[in-house]
């Protein structure tokens, strides 16, 4: 199992950090795109925790996911500052454009749609984030459609 060797490598590197669980979970998600259920026993063993404790932490935090995401992750900010400039209309449009709800992946597996409560660009909303570091401000339904076509045309 390629995943398991990745997980063992991460555990070996991080397990002795004080408060190691979140750094470990981040590294696993960064490497694999999600935290596979079969990682939980290994993590629990390495940190001398119960599997329930590890599961509890993974499921508590919005950022961690337990299933593989689509090829791209689209995060739409739905917090107050973006609400004041129409993010709810944008959110409705994005859901219909992807034909999926928030916290779900489009049927073709291309895009996972997530809501986020503030990306910190509140003077130029509505804001969205594609994958981990690409940001787009002043998003409109028209701009989103262009962006989507671009994302889908890339291999």
């Amino acid at each position: 199992m390629e995943n398991l060797s990745t997980i063992e490598r991460i555990l070996a590197a991080k397990q002795s950090l004080p408060g190691a669980l979140l750094p470990i979970l981040h590294d696993i998600q960064d490497a694999l795109g999600y935290i596979p259920p079969d990682a939980v026993p290994s993590i629990a063993r390495a940190l001398n925790l119960s599997r329930a404790e590890v599961h509890g932490v993974i499921t508590y935090y919005h950022y961690f996911r337990q299933t593989p995401p689509g090829r791209h992750v689209v995060r739409v900010c739905r917090a107050e500052a973006c609400q004041s400039v129409g993010c709810e209309a944008l959110a409705t449009h994005v859901q219909s454009a992807l034909a999926c709800e928030f916290h779900a992946t489009s049927a073709d597996g291309d895009l996972t749609l997530e809501a986020v409560y503030c990306l910190g660009h509140c003077a130029v909303g509505p804001n969205i984030q594609i994958d981990e570091t690409t940001l787009h401000a002043r998003m409109t339904p028209e701009k989103f459609d262009r962006l989507l076509a671009e994302l889908r045309s890339k291999p």
Binding site: P18, G19, A20, L21, L22, P23, L25, H26, L47, E53, G56, V57, Y60, Y61, H62, Y63, F64, V116, Y117
Partner: peptide
Amino acid sequence: VRKAAGAYVCGEETALLESLEGRRG
């Protein structure tokens, strides 16, 4: 530098400390 994981309540100082210690916030 430690990366949080998207829980708003971890801005509350004691929840943040719990999170830093590797637990639910």
